[in-house]
Nucleic acid binder design. Sequence first.
DNA 1: GATGAATGAGTGTTCATTCAT
DNA 2: CATGAATGAACACTCATTCAT
Lengths: 197, 197, 197, 197
Amino acid sequence: MIIYIRTMRTKDEFKQEALFKATVKLVNEIGFVSSSVAKIAKEAGISPATIYIYYKNKEDLLVCTYVNIKRNLSKAMLENFHSSLPIRDILRNAWFNMFRHITKYPDYFQFTEQFANSPYSALVNSLDVDKYFEPIINVLQRGIEQKIIKPVDFDILFAFAFYPIITLANPRLCDNFEVNEKNIETAFTMAWDAIKL
Amino acid sequence: MIIYIRTMRTKDEFKQEALFKATVKLVNEIGFVSSSVAKIAKEAGISPATIYIYYKNKEDLLVCTYVNIKRNLSKAMLENFHSSLPIRDILRNAWFNMFRHITKYPDYFQFTEQFANSPYSALVNSLDVDKYFEPIINVLQRGIEQKIIKPVDFDILFAFAFYPIITLANPRLCDNFEVNEKNIETAFTMAWDAIKL
Amino acid sequence: MIIYIRTMRTKDEFKQEALFKATVKLVNEIGFVSSSVAKIAKEAGISPATIYIYYKNKEDLLVCTYVNIKRNLSKAMLENFHSSLPIRDILRNAWFNMFRHITKYPDYFQFTEQFANSPYSALVNSLDVDKYFEPIINVLQRGIEQKIIKPVDFDILFAFAFYPIITLANPRLCDNFEVNEKNIETAFTMAWDAIKL
Amino acid sequence: MIIYIRTMRTKDEFKQEALFKATVKLVNEIGFVSSSVAKIAKEAGISPATIYIYYKNKEDLLVCTYVNIKRNLSKAMLENFHSSLPIRDILRNAWFNMFRHITKYPDYFQFTEQFANSPYSALVNSLDVDKYFEPIINVLQRGIEQKIIKPVDFDILFAFAFYPIITLANPRLCDNFEVNEKNIETAFTMAWDAIKL
DNA sequence: GATGAATGAGTGTTCATTCAT
DNA sequence: CATGAATGAACACTCATTCAT
């Protein structure tokens, strides 16, 4: 009986990280159209061929990058989530988490917007992404039952409670929105006014 | 040597129209990335070379297509605009106009969303597009002065009054929103609740 | 009514010819494996992109080149075909036609051999090529009926009547066969001895 | 860190054998053009890098595979070779040996055909392969001296005595030849008729 | 004005091979 | 010995654009 102990040359995490950042950066700067595999590789400081060790193809690279960002956004949104708090407070917390995250990583966010509005979005299993929002949906459901929130489709509630942030935080759509405490608080109040009964 | 016999001179406008439709169709179906000049030309039933008679280059074609759609949307939104009506009624009319137009021409709308979220958007003089919305801004301004509408940035007001429609009408973002009179009326009520004082 | 008379810029026959020759030459010299589109284009003195105007893809280029050569070979073989002559004379004529053609265009022939023994051959509709040999098959059939030729499968008859030429003319298989009148006449006699009753 | 526990040291011969089979299989299925080192390695269940332990490079792998097959074919052909038998019997035995071997290992045979018709063949020292056929050549020589066989070049004799088998056994050239005792016996008779005086 | 032919530059991807482990 | 990671060079093919007609 022979025992082999080998420390194999493993996939380099730094390379993967560099690849992720290069992808986001380039797609934001020059768009999907111009972001070639060669350019992304160069930006990441690796060979184009190396990308194909980490990802099946270009599409896979882009989709994985998207899902990765979305997962982080979801996680951030649910930080300090306490289901025992009043519904307004729970939503307020999620709202501010989301806003803070988006403004902290504006380029990650910008990437997802470009991605979501491209045909690439069809390649993502939407359930993979949506499942992270379930706790919020449950809160809204409770709100409706307790007659605190308007009894309408969740889609409509989200459209007023969360999508305006996306608009406001998107420099492409809204380049002169002043991000200060007062404005953000006002915005949340408006979101709440929209959905509350 | 080929001999063409045509009973009527083909109007150039037909070609331009066909080109417009082909551009929108193709970009929606396969995205900016895959929409080559050759494919667009084929879809429009003309030669790639002909495109360069109507437009300076590919970029020009895309930008013009975008501005054209935006202009039509603006026009539609302001139909039956009567500044003498109550502010809520004016906005409600604009809201419904917009919703109706978007759902009537979903592919035009989809094109603009993809365009606006791509670096191409930087090529559009935003004033060219924004000027059409001036009447609405004036109404909001009046509403603030009359203490009917919350005294916040116009960006924020738009984010709650109009962007939710865009979300709800976008099948890529919201594929199970049921478009019926009740839902749309509800949505407008929420928009109004958000912005009213 | 308008009449257009146009002399369109047409596909250049010289280019196509050059492409044909370059393909054969290169494939013979360096093989299918190394014969890249870029190299073939360079040999033909055109841009790689131009190839795709004349052919759908590389495969198409190779298959068309093959079929083209085969057609010419078939035509050559049937020259001075007179069905009224004695069967031996008909076959002798075809035999010599074939031999002469193969030795006159050894590189075309070499190409077909390499092609026929590669998986590309599966892409050719064999009926397209075989139909040219029908007159010969008819002659063999008549020979069998008249008890001049052995009553065996046509495949076997061909294997002895014609394939040995291919071997003898193939420099890769048979580099020291002396091509002189006596040898060729002898070879035909052997072919005839093999198939005759 | 990976820990392998193996009860027995894997024999290298297994790898080499697997590599041989994978090479033949893949080259037959997808051709030289598409048979990359990576694919062959995968088919053989080893790492691409491992191939370079057994062979100098890809070319070496292919040439060795070819020579290996050829050696086996030669050996098979000379089985039960008894120089004391009548010349016809000796050739008949070799003929049947060859036919049996080719039909038993059609894929090995197919590989050699593809190889021999490619520029790779130039890399093989033809003497290495030809030397195995020497006993047959001696027999033919004796036949000529005894006025049993036509006094022509050995190349011509081989072209009629042995190459037709290759044609008949090659499914790419001859896909509807029925392999039965009668047909094969007939074919040998024709070969003998061709070369005998 | 309108076209198909033509192309250099670029696309995404795979190649044979090397190397640290 | 055996490996998966890594890569520069090459692959087949498409691109936006120009040009002679």
